[in-house]
Design a protein around this nucleic acid. Sequence first.
DNA 1: GTCACAAACTAACGTTCGTTAGGCAATAGT
DNA 2: ACTATTGCCTAACGAACGTTAGTTTGTGAC
Lengths: 190, 190
Amino acid sequence: MTDRKKQILASSQCVFKEKGYAATSVRDIAKALKMEPASLYSHFSSKEDILKITCFEMAEKFELAVKEVNDIYFNAEEKLRMAIQLHVAILTENLNSAIIFIRDWRNLTGQSLDEFISKRNAYEMGIREIVQTGIREGVFNETDKKFASLTILSSVNWIVEWYKEDGNLDAQEIATKLSDFILSGLKKAA
Amino acid sequence: MTDRKKQILASSQCVFKEKGYAATSVRDIAKALKMEPASLYSHFSSKEDILKITCFEMAEKFELAVKEVNDIYFNAEEKLRMAIQLHVAILTENLNSAIIFIRDWRNLTGQSLDEFISKRNAYEMGIREIVQTGIREGVFNETDKKFASLTILSSVNWIVEWYKEDGNLDAQEIATKLSDFILSGLKKAA
DNA sequence: GTCACAAACTAACGTTCGTTAGGCAATAGT
DNA sequence: ACTATTGCCTAACGAACGTTAGTTTGTGAC
């Protein structure tokens, strides 16, 4: 990928973040780059191409993260904390793409959509297995594994809705707080 | 609101749920109702009118729910459990609208958008106050209140992504599980 | 029977959409 | 110096968009 292509990609993602993929026109993207709409097609084959690249680049990052966690860390709490930390890091370091990954992937069509969904499911299964490991090890409460992993992922993903780069919480702090919350809950130990 | 208008509204919401508001055309809605696009304008002034009604009807339900909780329930854990239960009930009983409420409100414009955001913020503040009460009462851990309430809301809202009416969990069960998870976390008490 | 009204229709408006065709200027390789 | 390639341009395509105007149809009230 050329530098120019990366630059156009980043700018597109910025516009998508603001208006959403479906409500953003190719002309909006071009305007943000101060170029003509038609010129975009020297770099991308279609508007959906931009969405596709964005979604799959993010999917790959998450795929690598879950692999890393499973390769290196041994006990379940450690694994879960690390998975959350990596997840938060990916989201915050790629905030525009992350929002598109979470919010706009539905606009993919055909085979891309199917492939994306299966990658998403694979990642979710990765998290679910960590939860399962914890239960097997006796350190997590027996619980509905699917339910628990969906709840974990939802609270992690939601940070893209309020995270600001110049806010008072950095990614590491967020990950720690989130992990504490997920592991220990709100209620004071009796 | 006439029955026919309600019917058209419900059908529109169903189409919006599938494709998203921005990607849905007035012609898509009309086709689902087996009527002509122009006929919709006997009932609604614009496509955005449908979105507006949907979002604000949902906002009102949530507004009433938080009021009810604050009027009736006294201790913080009870309040939080009830708020979650009502929230889940609203989502599951109005699944199509709920998805639009959560996902598509950004497509509102002008004053409607501002008003919607302020209603949303008010609701979030209601939840935050419940958390605050719990901390004051000494039953919740001292924590970042904003962070905690956002995390709670995110995990509750995410159920619209996977909840199926014919699934094996009903709304009450989901609310209980979610409350348990939020209050006690994943980790076994030491 | 006719009047009023609601709710649907047909037809079309002007705009915006994603995309393509074809050309022009600059740059790099030989 | 010539050629190929890259990256942008202008112009425009056909399709789809949200919406409006004006008309017809069906229904209930008097």
